[in-house]
């Protein structure tokens, strides 16, 4: 038990030293993106809110002078910032695959570390724990800023994205943090599996893309939907995250929407009569489902991350144990 305690203080500084460039890039990214979000939260939201106030004060028919540029700038910067937040899981996965484990195994520096009194399990624990803390804290900060920025605009800027708009839904909550951690686990696992830096980089990025695609399909079904029924004359409602929509008949059956249009035209009225339709049904998630959806999805992604971490540890143990036995 003495050897590990002697080695213990050296592990963390060594890890931070090896990955110093990544630490700089991550800090730079946080400063840049965090700064952009603060800029958006303060001056840009204020300017856009003022422009919307001018616009809404315009009398209809008269000349309307309002600061259209402020509104467009707000929208552009918001979208760029959201996409940048959503790119974080991919960057983390690519880095973890390329630089965290794959490169060390390819170059043999991992084996060197294991021979210096650092057990493989402790090596991997440190390799995962320190980046996980930094990635979790950093991404969490970005998500918090994004959410605060979005909330600040919601009541004042009329073109603020809705809560269920894809980029806003993901970038606004802990789901991105979970995806970034899953990216880290995927990268570490890919590096251990493939033992090659560039192959692991590609595989980890693809794994995050696959996880995200699966999430896109599964997410609306992670929580029971609410169903709204609206009359034929008013047209179908769109009150939140849409899951399914169609016609409801007199017997209460749900059938597909023929896409005819409004009942204002005689032909469509006739068609609806023939189908025995009495209204539209909409299966959707109202705003109150935001947190249940976010948290269930976050839980699912964290479970995937935990599973990948577990596989990584088992793989490492089996491989290093084999080697010991062979020796």
């Amino acid at each position: 038990m003495t050897a590990p305690t002697v080695a213990a203080p050296r592990l963390l500084p060594w890890l931070l030293r090896v990955h110093r460039p990544a630490l700089y890039v991550w800090t730079g990214l946080l400063v840049l993106l965090g700064g952009t979000l603060l800029w958006l939260w303060g001056p840009l939201t204020d300017a856009a809110a003022e422009a919307w106030r001018q616009y809404n004060a315009c009398a209809t028919g008269g000349v309307c002078r309002y600061d259209q540029d402020a509104i467009l700038r707000y929208k552009d910067v918001y979208l760029y910032a959201s996409f940048a937040v959503l790119a974080v899981p991919f960057l983390v996965a690519a880095w973890a695959g390329g630089a965290l484990t794959g490169r060390e195994l390819e170059h043999g520096t991992a084996q060197l570390a294991w021979s210096q009194g650092i057990s493989p399990a402790r090596w991997l624990t440190a390799k995962l724990a320190v980046p996980a803390a930094l990635v979790g804290a950093g991404t969490g900060l970005l998500v918090l800023l994004h959410h605060l920025t979005w909330s600040a605009g919601r009541s004042r800027v009329d073109n603020t994205k809705s809560w269920f708009s894809t980029e806003t839904f993901y970038a606004n909550g802990p789901l991105v943090v979970a995806l970034a951690l899953a990216g880290l686990a995927a990268g570490a696992l890919a590096g251990l599996l493939l033992r090659r830096s560039l192959a692991a980089l590609g595989a980890a990025a693809v794994a995050v893309a696959a996880l995200w695609t699966a999430l896109r399909f599964a997410l609306p079904h992670l929580w029971p939907t609410a169903t709204g029924v609206s009359g034929l004359d008013g047209g179908p409602g769109y009150p939140g995250l849409l899951v399914d929509q169609g016609l409801v008949t007199a017997t209460g059956a749900h059938i597909d929407n023929p896409g005819c249009g409004s009942t204002a035209t005689a032909e469509c009225r006739e068609l609806f009569d023939r189908l025995d339709a009495v209204g539209y049904y909409t299966d959707y998630h109202p705003a109150s489902h935001y947190w249940p959806l976010q948290l269930t999805a976050t839980g699912a992604v964290l479970a995937a991350a935990a599973l990948m971490t577990l596989i990584a540890f088992r793989l490492l143990r089996r491989r290093t144990a084999d080697k010991g036995a062979a020796r």
């Binding site: 023929p258 896409g259 469509c268 068609l271 023939r274």
Partner: peptide, 10 residues
């Protein structure tokens, strides 16, 4: 898919 004659996939 004549919208007047009900189509499943508009």
């Amino acid at each position: 898919c004549d919208p007047l004659a009900y189509c499943a996939d508009p």
